[in-house]
Design a protein around this nucleic acid. Structure first.
Length: 100
DNA sequence: CACATGACTATCC
DNA sequence: TGGATAGCCATGT
């Protein structure tokens, strides 16, 4: 296994542009498995390179951030994302799309 | 190889 | 609208 599904997830996550966030489902689709959102989260859960993988830019369908389990400073990451241009609806909820 | 686990999503009540 | 349940997929033991 050289190109495991999770490896693709890492690549996709690392390719997330600054000031933007991706949902697990979206990443799963890009990886080729629209239903593998769980596997995506699992892949990030292993997170071999949390310093290189902006898992904080990866949120769930609700827009809820997941870095609660990531590098440990959720508030710090929140400010970091805010600096990048990511707007937060709430402390743990980012604005994915203005779908009102 | 089979079972158990997990940072999800969609559907139902 | 919100909580609970079921379904799907990959990884690790």
């Amino acid at each position: 296994m050289k190109n495991s599904f999770k490896l693709q997830v890492y690549e996709l996550v690392k390719k997330i542009p600054k000031g933007k966030v991706m949902t697990y489902g979206q990443i799963a689709v890009l990886a080729g498995k629209p239903k593998a959102a769980r596997a995506v989260g699992n892949a990030l859960h292993k997170n071999p390179d949390p310093k290189k993988i902006p898992c904080q830019r990866v949120v769930n369908q609700q827009g809820r951030v997941a870095f609660h389990f990531a590098q440990g400073g959720e508030e710090k990451q929140r400010e970091l994302l805010l600096k990048e241009g990511v707007k937060f609806k709430d402390k743990l909820h980012v604005i994915l799309k203005s779908n009102v």
